[in-house]
């Protein structure tokens, strides 16, 4: 059989792919433990946590300027949080609207989807032009924020659309037939059932916004977000402190992921106790 050769070959290919995917991060992690005199390259002079300390401002006067991450980290998290809330609400509302068939739904769908297709640098430029024409000052919590929502709302919308596709409408009708108003039905039946989807939409929005910088570049004004702070270091010489920073932010993201996983697990556990009737009905 060909698959006797094919399977291991493809397996090896997939393993090589994973190495390709993770290689740079592994190298970056190794080099983040570079000694104080070492540069952003091999060989590693001596293993130390120097660059982590430097990053956190724990080392004495250093030959390298500290990365301006403190405030920008806070801004990025706030921005991502604002974006998450707004785009999830918009996404849920729009997906709910798409459950009824109506004229003009096709163009509306593509208008929303366009938000994730348009390159960030273009809408960023457009927004910068617009705000300077209208005399609105640019700020991460204003001009950047609305663009982040433009980007993440389509993702939230698609996630919710997929969730509603699998949603059994009769449970809502059951609630209505019991005399429960549409609003209460949404609150007590629809929302609890789609909640895992809402959580996924939120995770999507948060990660995308937290990491977004093409849309922020022209629109953030004076105060930088985290990705902008990193981007600023591109033009100058890089030092291992960026690597240390990369490792730390990745760890931070994983913490976020774990929190999401725990929330999800708690929810599905509860759902498993009352497992859905459709699996063995």
């Amino acid at each position: 059989m060909e698959s006797r050769i094919l399977r291991p070959t493809l397996g090896l290919y997939a393993a090589a792919f994973l190495l390709f995917l993770y290689g740079p991060m592994i190298v970056l992690t190794i080099l983040s433990f570079q000694g104080p005199e070492g540069g952003p390259q091999f060989p590693v002079q001596d293993w130390s946590l120097y660059w982590y300390k430097q990053l956190l401002g724990l080392s004495e006067a250093s030959r390298v300027a500290q990365l301006p991450v403190g405030d920008s980290l806070l801004r990025s998290i706030t921005l991502a949080f604002m974006t998450t809330v707004v785009s999830t609400v918009l996404g849920v509302m729009s997906a709910e609207a798409f459950r009824t068939r109506f004229k003009g739904s096709g163009p509306a769908f593509y208008l929303i989807i366009l938000g994730m297709m348009v390159p960030g640098v273009l809408v960023g430029l457009g927004m910068a032009l617009l705000s300077s024409t209208l005399g609105i000052s640019r700020a991460w919590w204003g001009t950047s924020f609305v663009l982040h929502v433009v980007y993440t709302y389509p993702f939230a919308f698609l996630v919710m659309l997929a969730i509603f596709n699998r949603f059994d409408r009769t449970v809502e009708e059951a609630a209505l037939s019991l005399g429960v108003s549409p609003a209460q039905t949404f609150r007590r039946v629809t929302f609890p059932i789609i909640f895992p989807g809402v959580l996924s939409a939120m995770l999507f929005s948060f990660t995308l916004s937290y990491d977004e910088f093409a849309r922020t570049l022209f629109t953030a004004g004076r105060d930088l977000t985290l990705p902008l702070a990193i981007y600023g270091t591109f033009s100058v010489e890089i030092h291992p402190n960026i690597f240390a920073f990369g490792v730390l932010t990745t760890l931070f993201s994983f913490t976020l992921l774990v929190i999401y996983g725990l929330l999800m697990k708690r929810f599905t556990n509860r759902a498993a106790r009352f497992a859905g009737q459709e699996d063995n009905g």
Binding site: A174, L176, S177, S181, R270, A271, Q277
Partner: peptide
């Protein structure tokens, strides 16, 4: 609207609320 009709409905697939006891 359906919720003001006071009519009971038993569905073929039962349509129980999966998240409730």
């Amino acid at each position: 609207p359906p919720h003001q009709r006071d009519i009971g409905f038993v569905f073929q697939n039962f349509a129980l609320f999966p998240h409730l006891s």
